[in-house]
Structure formats: C-alpha cells, structure tokens
Design a binder for these strands. Structure first.
Lengths: 338, 338
DNA sequence: AACACCGCTTGAAACGTTTCATGTCGTTCA
DNA sequence: TGAACGACATGAAACGTTTCAAGCGGTGTT
C-alpha cells in the first residue's frame, strides 16, 4: 500500500524533485552522480510513476483508444495485435472497446475514451461516427480510421484496396475456368462490400471470355449468414447454380463452405469454387482450405498506430490515406485441378 | 481545443467549483436550482470530465487491465466481451494486452497497467506471474485470475471445472461406443491441460467397459499443432489408431479435424470421433461440426470483472474461487450413428 | 580582471478534480 | 426571543507530476 512519490525519491536521494523528474525524462540534463543516486533511491523505494499525474500535467494520456466494429472477426484481433506491438514500443497502452455494430455502444466508448484523455483513437467504424469524430478532433483528439478508406480526406485512414482485391479474386476465378460467379455479401451500406463487389464487376467486364456475375446478399458478415446464403444457393437446381462464390469475407466464406460440403451435397472446388477475403487463420484450417485475399492485418494495425501518434504529436499534419494491396492466397477451395 | 474545466462551468453557472463537483458526484446534496444551472452550463460549454485529475485525486483510475495469454483463441474474445459489458455498466474502460505467451510482454503490460493506476487486473496468465501479482496486491492492486483456478487461494479466480469437463467429454465418447481414446494437447505445464487429462482418466477408469487411453502431446494449443498431431496419428497403420480424439481445446480439435478429413483419408466421425473444448463459434462452423465442451465464456468475463470490482471496493474481502460447470455440446464429429 | 557562458540544481507554479471544515441562511422548537 | 438544527454553498488544500525561471559555481575568452 506504500504509495511512493517523486518527492519521497527526492528526499531519499538528497536531491530536489525537479532533478528526479529530469532523471526520468531527460537523463542527459543531469549529472551521472545525481542520476545514479536517484536510480538507487527508485530501486530502494520501489517507485512507480503515476501516470494520472503525468497525464493531468500534460493534458494527454499515454493511452490510445481502439474502437472495433466487429469483435467476432479474427481479422481484427490481428489488427489490434499489430497496434499493440507498436504501442508498447512507445510505452502506450490500448483502451479496447468492441461495439459489435451497436451504435449506442460506439458512442459510450467514445465518451469514455475522451474522458480518459486518450492521445488518439483508432476506429473501425460501423455507424456514421464522422460528426462525433470531428467534434473530438476540434477538442484535440485525432482519429485514424482502420479498414475503411476515408473518402473525404477528413481523417487519416489505413486500409486495403478493396476494389483491387475484388478484381484479383474474380480474375483468379476466371483464370481457373469459372464462368458463373456469385458475389456473396452485405450489408451494402458498408464500403467494404460495395468496393469488393465493384472490383469483382471490373474483373468480369474486362475478362476475355463471357462471365456472368450475380449478387447473393447477406445482412451481415458472419458465418451464420454465410450458411444461410449457402442454403439458398443449394435450393436452386444444380444447373442453375454458380460455379464460383466470392465471399465478402472469410466468415461468410466459411459459412458457405460448411453448408455446401455438409452431407457431401456439393464438391468444393470441383463443382463450386469458393474464395474469401481477409485470410484469417481459420481460412487455412478449414476442411477444404480456403483461398482468400490476404490483408496485411498486423501491418495495418502497426501503421495505423504510427500514423496516429505522428498526428497527435504534430496537429498540423494533414490527413493521409494509407492503402495496402491485398494478396491472393490460393488454396484447395479454388484449386484448378482437383 | 477548448479545454473546459469544472472552474469554467462554475463561473458560467455562477456557483462554486465545489457545487459543480457535487452536482456531478452527489446530486442529492445540491438544490434543484443549482443543479439545473450547472447542467445548463455543462451543456453550453461542452464540459467533459477529466479522468486524469479525478484519478490523481482518488488514487485509482476508472480502468481495469486485462492481460490475455492467448490472443489467437476466440474463446478469450468472448471472455473479454463479457468483461466489457460489465465494465461499461460501471463506466469503466478496459486496458487490453495480449501476450501470446511472451513472458517479457506479460511483464511489460503489468508495469504499464500499474503506472496507469488501474483499479484491478484480470489475468489469464501464461508464465508464473504469481510473485508479481502478489507485489501488486501489496501496493493495492487486486487481481482476478481468469480461466485458471488459483489453487493456493492467493487470488480470486473465475474458471471452469476442467476435470469435470474432461470426464464428461470422455464419458460421452465411451457412451457412444468408443474404446480407444487419445487425449491430444499440451503443454503440460498448463493447468488446463493436466486437469482435462485427469478428468479424462477418471472417465476411463470408472467406465463399465475396458477403455484404453493414450496421450498425444502437443507443444501448444494451436490449429497448427493440431494438424501436426493429426499427421502423426495418420502415419500409424489404421489398426493401430485410436477411435476417438479428445482435444485440449477447439483450436487443436480443428487442426486434427482438418488433417484427418483432408483428402478423405479418414471418415469423421465414422472411423474416428473428435471432441474439443471451449465451444468457440468456429467449432459449429467446421466442415464436420465439432462436438465440444462449452465454457460460459461471456459469463466468465462478466463474473471476473464483477468480482474484481467488489474486491477493489473492499480490500478486506478474502479471495474466492468461482467455478462454472462446462456443458457437453454434441455435434456431428461425435455423432453416434453417422 | 571582467564577462559570458555552460552544466547542473532548485523550488514554486500549474494541471483539474474531490473533499471537508467552515459559513450562511431560514426554519423549528422550547 | 433565542437556540438549535438542517440544507446548501463555499473555497482552500491536496493528489503527483512536469516545466521553467532563477541561481550557483566553474571555465574559457577577451
């Protein structure tokens, strides 16, 4: 229960509090003699820095808030993990909040984090939080959007080129002989959905051969929705089914896969090929290992945090959009000869 | 950039700072008249409480640290989510740190969280952190162990009865006709592993029929290790293989499943049944839906947080161990007639 | 010899909150 | 009428840190 302050350390070392603070924060402004005495005192007393006082004085804390839309998607765990890596390199802790699409919850977290004087926010948004984020910026709290391109250049963002990803996915399907593609995903309010579909359409239109594309809409990006979509497709007569499915993300793709292969109703990839998006670790672990468009998830996290810290340090920096290219990972679910 | 303080609010409302503070913290000690004037001023100025100052004054912050061992396991996301639910009910934010088995990292987070004056710690530990946690308790920071029973009654803990879970899993396998069971898991330094195996042994010994049990050790609880273990089993001649696998958790089980069913080498469950532990959402979504021992993961999270807050509020409370019972969830991977 | 400068130390002020002893009314009761 | 009390309001003190103007020797320059 011993709460040791900088003052106690100073007394024990026979120096002033200013000197102790300098040892901690600007070691070169202090003599070696003082430094070692202070260090010894710190050891002896078990001094631990009080971040609250430091924050109060500085007006900003050593924390960053991370508001995650979809706490069920392993993709975001990797992003968070990447952010953590970079954060701990700077002695910064992460305040974590999963909203699972609950707009009220999203607001609650933003309020909470503002009170905590966070240095900035990483936001993988669901609802339209732009207004609130703008308000926060006026009050000195910067935000970086994660996994969502910020069109209006209002905020920095770190994301992947979803249009290119959609194009590459469908190009791959076409190159492996598929001619009837279905895009499975939703909701269409989400930019990820529309961008990936737009890319798919580009691939279809620029193909050398005639390719059909249809849309099978889901109301969420979840395994359950994938299963439901799969059942709907299976209800159609075999001749009327697509020969390839491009899912908006891996959760949906895994759901599709499960419904197609269960009871051996459809051979994957022989009859229907499936490709997903994100390349979460479970994609490789599926019964039929899943082809996917890999996002550099961890890098997205580290980059987002780095951008955020840079902007927090220099408020004059203009927002910048960082866009990574996705990478095609081919596995059994789209194997050409299987 | 307007940083509005309680003082500004007081001036604007024509009252003292003490009154403003009272409006915020003990509304009944203040006249309706003052209260409404203060509320109006808060609205007008856009006042946001400064948690740092509050923390400095109180000596403890409105945050709780959550140190998670295995950031790859979806099980923990649910636990975290449960903790979040309870936390936001109390206006508390969660500082999140995934260590992925890195002991150094575990230490770093504990240091960071101590500096943040967290109200307490939820710890799903890997290394032997007991000493450090004891030190923290002496300094007034309580910890609650999550997913790990604290034998020595040194700390409170919230976990599941792993022995019972192991027993129930193997009883189920025996009841569905299996006679050669392999326990697949590790490392054996982890209590989860040894407890679940111990339960499995109990089931074997108390069975009415002769049942064999063997151990296939893995070096981690990951999908990759599950795949590797599966390959090892497949290398044995068919007559020398177990007819049922009890995996230490679902990640390992999914790995086993993948290696067994890929290329149609083994029929699951006809030739070999598989059961996992945790019942993560991907268990149901596997190609052969996976039977599993369900943990009440979200409840574990909310309970752990509640226990932690109670202990933080009353330092005299003695540690208590909360143990939930796991629940058998039967799916195709152990179906009796398939 | 006078001066400027450098390296280092010092201690007070300030950050925004909560708490608490003190004060000021107005009401009730004897 | 005076005393006692209750309901609020007040403002200073304290929490632990960082910063910064000021000070102090000692060294180098002119």
């Amino acid at each position: 229960m011993a709460n040791v302050s900088i003052r106690d350390v100073a007394r024990h070392a026979g120096v002033s509090v200013g000197t102790v603070s300098n040892v901690l924060n600007r070691p070169d402004a202090v003599s070696a003699e003082s430094a070692s005495r202070v260090q010894a005192a710190i050891e002896a007393l078990g001094y631990v820095r009080n971040e609250a006082a430091r924050t109060l004085r500085a007006g900003v804390s050593a924390t960053v808030g991370f508001v995650v839309l979809d706490g069920q998607n392993p993709f975001f765990y990797d992003v968070v993990r990447g952010a953590e890596d970079e954060a701990s390199r700077h002695g910064i802790a992460i305040l974590y909040g999963a909203t699972d699409g609950d707009v009220q919850r999203e607001r609650t977290y933003l309020d909470l984090f503002e009170e905590q004087q966070v240095r900035g926010l990483l936001v993988a948004p669901y609802g339209d939080v732009n207004r609130r984020l703008e308000q926060l910026r006026e009050r000195g709290i910067r935000s970086v959007l994660v996994d969502r391109f910020s069109g209006e250049n209002a905020f920095s963002s770190v994301s992947v080129d979803n249009v290119a990803g959609g194009r590459m996915a469908v190009e791959h399907l076409v190159a492996t002989g598929r001619r009837r593609v279905a895009f499975v995903g939703g909701p269409f309010e989400m930019r990820q959905t529309t961008d990936r579909l737009a890319g798919a359409r580009v691939a279809v239109e620029s193909a050398d051969v005639p390719v059909e594309i249809e849309v099978v809409a889901t109301s969420a990006m979840s395994v359950a929705e994938g299963v439901a979509a799969g059942e709907r497709i299976l209800r159609r007569p075999p001749g009327d089914r697509p020969d390839a499915l491009f899912a908006v993300n891996d959760l949906v793709a895994l759901g599709l896969l499960q419904s197609l292969v269960s009871d051996r109703r459809v051979m994957v990839p022989e009859e229907i090929a499936i490709i997903g998006f994100d390349d979460i670790s479970f994609a490789a672990a599926a019964a039929v290992p899943l082809s996917s468009m890999r996002q550099p998830s961890r890098t997205i996290g580290t980059t987002a945090l780095r951008v955020l810290l840079e902007e927090a340090a220099d408020p004059d920096l203009v927002p910048r959009q960082t866009v990574f290219q996705p990478e095609l990972v081919v596995r059994r679910s789209t194997a050409v000869d299987a």
